[in-house]
């Protein structure tokens, strides 16, 4: 019998190249998509090339992106929120109705809306925890409940399908300045939600990648039993994520309210899917445990560019939804392909 004098070193796993590491990031697919969409519309839509329209495109993206950031974090945490679209409307209506009905300072309504939005998020998370049902089902329930409440209460309070104007109430001007003002940056008009969007993206990305809460979120979505077993407060993490969606719904709801001066009670239905699609294009897995906040933001940018690009190109805007569907499937395939390539290297 021969003796082995030296154990061979394990050379089966080589270090990955820098390209592979970059390609392995979840947001790569979204970036490729964003460049492709930008090039397409730069070619076909002359108005798309004007610098002044950057502000408009960013604004359109921000109204999706503010929510997509929170929804992406929630999806990484392994859950869905189908009530995210109508929750925005609920928040706006809550502030408008309360302030108008009692003729209060609008800031009272704004604070009430914040508490309500966080409450709806916490309720979703709590219901998920106590029932053990899939979040898809629980939030589908909240979606219908909120939709009904929006329509019914608006009929009761304002006697119609939209909230009453708030512009003669105290605090309206300051609230408008906070939630719906704009400023010039060169020839580009920057509306305030763009700032919120950017700030939320930065905060979301830092929380996810640079704080321990990020690890908790990844693990809660990746394997909640394992996470709980090593001591991650999974229930609390998920409730916090739902409340994060509520918070973002409040920001966007307040913007909508003070930008248009009223809120349509039927608005917001269907937007939850746009948020989810943005997150998925940005690299979030439907099964949780993987994804990127920056990716979701790029996903929103793709939608913002498409919405306006179709308009600038003079196409029928009815095609937007079709484009959405194609984009979703294409992006998911690209993500899968890129991930497989990166893993194989």
């Amino acid at each position: 019998m021969t003796t082995v004098t030296a154990t061979p070193t394990d050379d089966r796993v080589a270090t990955r190249s820098a390209t592979a590491t970059i390609m392995g990031r979840p947001e790569v697919g979204a970036l490729i998509g964003a460049v492709a969409v930008a090039v397409l519309f730069l070619l076909v839509a002359p108005a798309f090339r004007s610098v002044g329209n950057i502000g408009t495109i960013l604004y359109g993206s921000s109204t999706i992106g503010i929510m997509a950031v929170a929804v992406a974090l929630l999806m990484i945490g392994g859950e869905f929120d189908l009530s995210a679209g109508v929750a925005v409307t609920t928040s706006g209506l809550a502030a408008a109705h309360l302030a108008w009905f009692f003729s209060l300072n609008v800031w009272v309504g704004i604070v009430f809306a914040l508490v309500l939005s966080l409450g709806v998020g916490a309720f979703n998370g709590w219901l998920l925890h106590v029932t053990g049902l899939p979040s898809f089902l629980v939030t589908l329930g909240t979606f219908f409940v909120l939709q009904g409440v929006n329509l019914a209460l608006t009929r009761v309070v304002a006697g119609g399908v939209s909230s009453n104007s708030l512009n003669d109430l105290d605090g309206f001007d300051s609230a408008k300045a906070v939630f719906a003002s704009s400023f010039q940056l060169g020839s580009v008009e920057i509306k305030v939600p763009i700032i919120f969007w950017a700030a939320l993206t930065v905060i979301g990305a830092i929380v996810l990648l640079r704080t321990h809460y990020g690890s908790w979120i990844f693990s809660a979505g990746g394997d909640s039993a394992a996470a709980r077993a090593v001591g991650v407060p999974v229930t609390g993490t998920k409730i916090a994520l739902f409340m994060g969606v509520g918070f973002c719904a409040w920001i966007l709801g307040m913007h909508n309210l003070f930008n248009y001066n009223n809120v349509q009670s039927g608005a917001g239905v269907g937007n939850e899917f746009i948020y989810i699609i943005s997150a998925v294009i940005g690299g979030c897995l439907l099964t949780g445990g993987y994804g990127s906040v920056v990716g979701a933001t790029v996903g929103s940018l793709i939608f913002g560019m498409t919405q306006l690009g179709i308009f600038y190109a003079g196409w029928d805007p009815d095609w937007f939804k079709t484009f959405l569907g194609v984009m979703l499937i294409a992006a998911t395939l690209v993500n899968l392909y890129v991930k497989r390539k990166a893993d194989a290297r």
Binding site: S215, S219, D223, A227, A229, G231, Y290
Partner: peptide
């Protein structure tokens, strides 16, 4: 645990320090 109690999509170091992160 028998079933390892690691989150499969998370990196090795994140799993190692899960719930005991150094800050």
């Amino acid at each position: 645990y028998q079933d390892l109690a690691l989150a499969p999509l998370m990196s090795v170091w994140r799993n190692f320090f899960l719930a005991n992160e150094i800050r």
